[in-house]
Design a protein around this nucleic acid. Sequence first.
DNA 1: TGTACATCAGTGAACGCGCGTTCACTGATGTAC
DNA 2: TGTACATCAGTGAACGCGCGTTCACTGATGTAC
Lengths: 213, 213
Amino acid sequence: MSWTGRGGRRSYHHGNLREALISAALDLIAQKGPAGFTFAEAARQAGVSPAAPYRHFRDRDALMADVARRGFEQFEQRLAAAWNDGRPSPLAALERMGGAYLAFARDEPAYFSAMFESGLPVAEHRDLQEAGDRAFGVLRRACEAIVATMPAGKRPPAMMMALHIWALSHGIASLFARGDAARRALPMSPEELLEAATLVYLEGLGITSKGKA
Amino acid sequence: MSWTGRGGRRSYHHGNLREALISAALDLIAQKGPAGFTFAEAARQAGVSPAAPYRHFRDRDALMADVARRGFEQFEQRLAAAWNDGRPSPLAALERMGGAYLAFARDEPAYFSAMFESGLPVAEHRDLQEAGDRAFGVLRRACEAIVATMPAGKRPPAMMMALHIWALSHGIASLFARGDAARRALPMSPEELLEAATLVYLEGLGITSKGKA
DNA sequence: TGTACATCAGTGAACGCGCGTTCACTGATGTAC
DNA sequence: TGTACATCAGTGAACGCGCGTTCACTGATGTAC
């Protein structure tokens, strides 16, 4: 395949190998989990020799970390889009963001695995950690906005609230929404389960959802 | 090592190879994750030839499934011990059970990985699924007991409550309490985070913790 | 108590396989003049 | 516009390795009589 570059033109060079490897990695991770992805097979799928990937990634872990980083970036974008600056109302937007969390786990199992289950040492990949922090930041700012609507004396710590909702969403996503064979059966949709939990939690914080459509 | 059986006596037979393989698997999973465990290395660690494990397990997955099943059984026992039939009060016991969930994730990372992150197809291992269901049953019955203390008209569905608390505990355990390199930093202990979340959630259900010590 | 025999739980050598990684190399591309 | 050259991004062959799995085998154990 090395003779067809962009536009079908003959080409010794692949032209876009880095992206092709990322894309192959996503395929393989989605099919066989983070452990089932190998450098050699990613190269094969991209149509290059097994030595070629080393021009773009130091080793297998570096590729995996790049996939995870991209995953966090996409995740951040999706969460931010769902939050949409809290429109039409902060509570409605928060529910939508919960749905986006679950949708991401379901629609992008490869990214999700690379981000949360690949066993990458987050502390050793600064950019990965930062990307993760930015994604969490979307949720934290959402919680700050919601807390700000409450009377000054009754405001819970937004950071704690964000961690709680993150954990709740992540637990439901991991146990019930992921698109792999380990998914548990559930008598309702993960979205319904998460929405109900969030409403109860907000109620417990003293945030009533009466005004919500 | 094949010549020392129980009591140091010479022995061609290992004597307890099945258990030794399970124990080796736990070691290896704890060190390198579920993917880093191999049949061959488990055999080596148990001091037998690479063909020996086939006398006890059909293949690598069968061993992994057995580890996961044992994990769920231990998990069930710990949760049940923490719940202790709701003594001294159902709410105090529920908090203790949450702590047990996190402690298990931290103290038994190998079991935890095998149970939740090994990618085993739960549906294809009936005994594994049943063991998981029994562990969840402990939490469900705890929720039923708590719900039963409420006025008849105000009782939330215990099943939903159990799923919510399971997801919350699992999310916090996965993100913050697991003893591996992927653990995220946190401005408080996972236990504190979970306890606070549970209290807010119960408050939202209309369960006040005023009577709690 | 002794013996013959069946069964069990190991051995150890061998196999094919795919992996990660390296190496000297070479075709393609871009740039200076 | 053409040419020389540096750089880049690939090749393909090779390596050592550990894995899963099989095979005929054999030492140890248990049991019938």
